[in-house]
Nucleic acid binder design. Structure first.
Lengths: 336, 336
DNA sequence: GAAACTTGGCGAAACGTTTAGCTGGGTGTT
DNA sequence: AACACCCAGCTAAACGTTTCGCCAAGTTTC
């Protein structure tokens, strides 16, 4: 690997000048600049990241920490984030906390070691243990994504979970459903809690409430949702509609319905918040609310980069996106 | 941030000793070691990656370059790779070339700048332009994943595409299908070419060949496959079975079938190589071959890490995985 | 025409590690 | 008792950048 010194020697200038040319950090006269660029080209020189990082403190790395990389929702975020990060001139380091606080802790220590310039985080658990943050006053800029935890210094980008659930619930209620069941996510997550609350609020507004056995946790997992759905659907008093709190679980529910030989929407109406690719295209297309994942990710990165560039003492900003109801054929009028 | 010097001072030792303790690179007597560890803990010290990298030449970074991050197949790889990389003590930097050679070139220059220790690459295009590799003899260890290009120095991890197609084709042929159509991927990719060739070979072995209009490219894209499928299925001479070359396209085909009001498998049998989550669970469950993605990824990383540790002059190894035929209900006996 | 500014470019000191080479006291051998 | 060896631990020199302060030459300003 050629070094900046090699370039400087080849161009007959000092390393400072080469650096100035590369980073456009000072005016360099055209002839010199030309010689430098020629030398760079000739030697196929590329500045060594580690050295730049060491000297400047900037790493050009943005960490993305997701809670469950096997969930297509987060996979989509990786995709959007890679593009956004690249557009801002950074590189994306991806971590999967797999919903385990211990992993999250390890990951953060790694992030600190890598001196990542910023972090997009889908937090697991209910509160961050910011071992890493305070100690030096040198907190890493963070944007909380999707889920929110108790933290008054980070930006957040979320969707309005309550609204999402309400939209779906009202749609079902308007179809005449009164016995609505739900498969929730983990209730210690805002995404789990909010979607349940939204449903309850919408039902309550019409003087209704789910039956006790009709509210079950699917833990945001396909297999769990599958067996919970089987369980609910085989009850003699099964609900006429089921609200499923995320896309992965919706898949499990649809699978359970197919395996039980039930017809959707004739026998049961299904609707969800969040989706997975495919489940909205195959018949019966799922009625669901969708998140503007790409917009959310872009916004998260915009906030993060601003925080990186302008300093981390900006007041925290909270951006809430509105989910959109997308109608399929998975819900029908209640029949009795 | 505390530095190694702070730790050394606090523990009353030299930086060399601290380094020895951290990296277990030399024997340090128990009392000293203990003092050092205490100081590290006290100061919440973590070695700064960039400095280590600069000095040692190792970055602890592995790059994953995929051809299409929006394809669930590659998303799965990201997931598996993140886990594998973490287990080996590296961090994963993710790039998406989006099937564009230009992007791939840019990404490689970035990888060099970051001095990644190794690369897992799903190459786009038919041959790599190793601008980066030869110039210094300092080639970065690379494992080619899924797709193969002309390169005699890298390890490769692939599936046997021909076998995958043959398995599916023979299954369809055994069901009595003679008029088999196919939606292929890009034929300049081994994944596209091989799957077509496998189909042709299997048919030829029984004295058959697809009709001209029944072999179409879907470019590995959902939307393209959708319209191509509509086109094929509306022909008066539509095939009795359709072999689809990957999971994303299979989704598009199923969507087309649903939109056309056709029944699968009654009106048309569908089978694919590769899958996407969901399409194998919803009825009719798709008959397809599946790739052992996790095993493949683990193997790729095993090879890569070995190459990183043992030196890049190992002879190239080519590991081929055998796809497995998974039966759903999307294929039926031919009816006439 | 001398003093006071500007300005393009240079020299060299960091940044935080790793590691080769050295030191000096303790062991073991004659 | 003298010698050679070991070995734990230290000193200091890199690694490849960025950047601060400086210099010399050109441009104003009186």
């Amino acid at each position: 690997m050629a070094t900046i010194r090699d370039v400087a020697r080849a161009a007959g200038v000092s390393t400072a000048t080469v650096s100035a040319v590369i980073n456009e950090t000072a005016y360099v006269s055209p002839p010199l600049r030309k010689r430098v660029l020629a030398a760079i080209d000739e030697l196929n020189y590329a500045p060594m990241h580690a050295a730049q990082n060491l000297k400047s403190g900037r790493s050009g790395l943005v960490a993305l920490v997701v809670a469950d990389l096997s969930n297509p929702f987060f996979a989509k975020i990786v995709c959007a984030a890679e593009a956004a990060v690249a557009a801002w001139g950074y590189s994306l380091v991806v971590f999967n906390s797999d919903e385990k606080p211990d992993n999250e802790r390890r990951i953060f220590s790694r992030i600190r070691t890598l001196s990542c310039d910023g972090v997009v985080l889908s937090p697991v658990g209910s509160s961050l243990r910011w071992d890493q943050r305070d100690l030096e006053g040198a907190a890493i800029p963070i944007v909380l994504f999707g889920r929110v935890v108790d933290d008054d210094r980070s930006d957040t980008v979320t969707i309005d979970n309550i609204s999402a659930a309400k939209q779906v619930a009202n749609y079902l209620l308007d179809l005449g459903h009164q016995r609505i069941g739900t498969i929730t996510g983990p209730l210690h997550l805002t995404t789990g809690r909010g979607r349940l609350d939204g449903l309850l609020q919408a039902m309550q507004a019409r003087g209704l409430a789910p039956q006790p056995g009709h509210v079950r946790s699917g833990e945001f997992r396909e297999d769990v949702a599958y067996s919970v759905a089987r369980d609910i659907l085989e009850r003699p008093d099964r609900p006429s509609a089921l609200y499923v709190a995320n896309g992965v679980m919706a898949l499990g529910v649809m699978r359970a319905i197919a395996d039980l030989g039930l017809k959707c929407p004739e026998d049961i109406s299904i609707a969800s918040t969040d989706t997975i690719p495919g489940i909205g295209g195959l018949k019966p297309r799922l009625t669901r609310t969708e998140h503007p994942v790409t917009d959310m990710t872009n916004e998260a990165l915009r906030l993060l980069v601003e925080r990186i560039r302008r300093g981390n003492d900006l007041p925290p900003r909270n951006v809430v996106f509105e989910p959109a109801l997308v109608l399929g054929e998975s819900c029908g009028p209640v029949n009795r």
